[in-house]
Design a protein around this nucleic acid. Structure first.
Length: 272
DNA sequence: GTAAACCTGGCA
DNA sequence: TGCCAGGTTTAC
């Protein structure tokens, strides 16, 4: 489900509601997430105050008053939903972790596929975060950086952009959208891109992610932010999951191919 | 590099 | 019934 814009949307929705609140209780109903939840997880979170909430790549980071960090990744199907009154929350199937806060509210981690993960760690030394590349909306991601990678890999441009070590937070939806906007086909080898195309890819990455955040992410099947609102970016998709539908620029039917084991969509006329 | 693995749910 | 899904890691 969640790529950078969706995680950013959740963080923004939760930030004003949970900052300054203390963790009163932690109920782990299922430890069997992508990485098993250790026995110390609840204890290291309970009693801590949440100082701030931020995002890094597709991770949500709840900074705690002891300097550590509650790190949450939603995987494919995860949600982190705030309920106003935890006492009246009816537990649903796939509610795996329930965190009670000092104002009576709660944060419910719900994840049918259990590809998500969470941990309490020192963010600066966490192995979850240590190998992640630059933020695409930050200064570390620029055309020279991308063009400099060209001679170091034989991978496709799509594979490279999906690699979290190269750039943080892009997933299958937004890579397809970025490559459409950059007018580059997903199967192109990165090494075959011109310097001009690298400029376009970086510029398109910024544009698409900014636009998606403004529209509070994509609710293609079920994404909800931290307070249960749907996003609106799905209505603006140019190519993702639009196989056979007309290109918004030239009306040519959108094509679907598999690149790096993932469905990819492009306009055969607009993208080269 | 590529494939398979982890899981459940939804849809044709 | 089989295939697909917004992610990541692991193993050939």
């Amino acid at each position: 489900m969640p790529e950078l814009p969706e995680v950013e949307t959740i963080v923004r929705s939760l930030l004003p509601l949970v900052t300054g609140k203390a963790v009163r209780s932690v109920h782990v109903l299922c430890t069997d997430l992508r990485r098993a939840l250790g026995p110390c997880f609840g204890a290291s979170l309970t009693g801590r105050r949440i100082v701030s909430v931020r995002r890094r790549a597709k991770y949500m980071l709840f900074d705690l008053d002891d300097g550590r960090c509650w790190i949450v990744h939603l995987g494919m199907s995860g949600r982190l939903l705030r309920v106003k009154q935890l006492a009246s929350h009816e537990r649903r199937k796939h509610d795996h972790v329930i965190v009670g806060l000092s104002d009576g509210a709660g944060l419910v981690f719900h994840d049918p596929r259990r590809f998500g993960l969470m941990a309490v760690e020192d963010a600066a030394s966490s192995t979850l975060l240590s190998a992640i590349g630059p933020e695409p909306l930050g200064r570390g991601f620029h055309a020279e950086y991308l063009s400099g990678l060209r001679r170091r890999t034989r991978r496709t441009v799509k594979d490279v952009l999906m690699d979290q070590r190269v750039v943080a937070g892009l997933g299958n939806i937004y890579v397809n959208e970025v490559l459409f906007t950059a007018r580059v086909r997903p199967r192109r080898k990165l090494a075959s891109l011109t310097a001009e195309e690298c400029v376009r890819v970086v510029r398109a990455t910024r544009e698409i992610l900014t636009e998606a955040i403004e529209h509070r992410g994509s609710s293609i099947s079920d994404f909800l932010d931290g307070i249960g609102r749907r996003g609106a970016y799905q209505w603006r998709r140019r190519v993702y999951d639009r196989k056979g539908e007309p290109c918004r620029e030239c009306a040519t039917p959108i094509k679907a191919v598999v690149v790096g084991q993932r469905s990819s969509f492009y306009c055969p006329r607009c993208q080269r």
